[in-house]
């Protein structure tokens, strides 16, 4: 191939490179058109007012009781379900890895987790209505035992109900994140600690937990993001009546509820910023966590 004169040779290479590079164009074009442009447009519009002038007023307008309530509800639900999901997920993952349960249980739990972490949205909401709704199986059962949930302030269609439903898809995700990390705990570390005179509590406190910490934090951050962007489950359960950021944006799309379109752009921008921080943190933590997985 390189037999030709030097000049023709490099020319040929350049042309080939240009041709090869062109094959990436459709993908980049798609990305720009359907990811960057829509998100970027919201981002830019959030810095402009209805007259098209540049302004920060939209972000100042977010200092409004309804918006603050929406953000605080979204953050609280994400944070609460991340913590609860992480604790349950961690305990289950611990049980099937270090806990020394039969191999079959481990496989079954991991399969369940794969299903449950994807079992979300409309069907999940329906499943919980059938379980803990006003005429749900558990509600009726408890009523027969003399415990009336709905008379004691419980409602599936409220904050506490949404937390219970979210944890359903949150904790299995934690199981999936933590299992490889717990598998990475080597027997030698435990033996070495024992030889140096550490008891079980000291081993966990000074060896295992510090090693697991990046993975645990990564899992919690992932769970947080998982809940923060969620919309369908809450929509199917509450019909979008709960004041959450996703619901406010959705209502704005169905009809002008904020009476200020630019404010909705600012809300959306806030979501993208929070999600970017979340996924960025997750990526960094996950990289740290994987350091111990390399044998």
């Amino acid at each position: 191939m390189a037999n030709g004169a030097a000049q023709t040779w490099w020319r040929q290479i350049e042309w080939r490179k240009v041709g090869v590079s062109l094959t990436v164009v459709p993908f980049l074009l798609f990305a720009v058109l359907f990811m960057i442009l829509p998100a970027g447009s919201l981002l830019i519009e959030s810095f402009r007012n209805a007259q098209g002038q540049w302004t920060l007023a939209n972000f100042a307008d977010m200092n409004d009781p309804m918006i603050i309530e929406a953000y605080s509800m979204s953050l609280r639900i994400s944070f609460t379900t991340a913590i609860i999901g992480a604790i349950i997920g961690l305990l289950v993952a611990y049980a099937v890895t270090v806990g020394g349960l039969p191999r079959g249980i481990r496989t079954a739990i991991l399969t369940f987790s794969g299903v449950a972490s994807n079992f979300a949205g409309v069907p999940l909401a329906f499943a919980f209505v059938a379980t803990l709704g006003r005429t749900g199986i558990i509600t009726v059962l408890l009523a027969q035992l003399g415990i009336n949930l709905y008379k004691n302030g419980f409602s599936l269609y409220s904050y506490i109900g949404l937390v219970i439903v979210y944890v359903y898809f949150q904790f299995p995700l934690m199981v999936l994140v933590m299992t490889p990390a717990l598998d990475g705990l080597r027997r030698e570390w435990r033996e070495a600690s024992a030889i140096l005179g550490a008891n079980t509590a000291q081993y966990w406190r000074h060896v295992a937990l510090p090693i697991l910490m990046p993975a645990i934090l990564a899992g919690m951050v992932l769970l947080f993001g998982n809940a923060f962007g969620a919309f369908a489950t809450a929509y199917a359960l509450t019909g979008g009546t709960l004041t959450m950021v996703t619901n406010v944006i959705a209502q704005e799309m169905s009809g002008d509820v904020l009476h200020n379109e630019a404010l909705a752009y600012a809300l959306a921008t806030g979501m993208i910023v929070i999600m970017t921080i979340t996924i960025g943190t997750y990526t960094v933590l996950q990289r740290r966590a994987e350091r111990w997985l390399r044998a």
């Binding site: 990436v24 993908f27 980049l28 990305a31 359907f34 990811m35 960057i36 442009l37 829509p38 998100a39 447009s41 919201l42 519009e45 993001g225 923060f228 962007g229 969620a230 919309f231 996703t246 944006i249 959705a250 704005e252 799309m253 909705a264 752009y265 959306a268 979501m271 993208i272 999600m275 970017t276 979340t278 996924i279």
Partner: peptide, 29 residues
């Protein structure tokens, strides 16, 4: 050398919740 760029682009959907994405679609298209 372009691989990290494309890899990054493929992860962008994770940071845009679908509500926000469809909001952007309505805004632009």
């Amino acid at each position: 050398r372009l691989r990290p760029v494309v890899e990054f682009v493929a992860l962008v959907p994770f940071v845009i919740p679908s509500v926000v994405l469809v909001f952007g679609y309505l805004r632009v298209f």
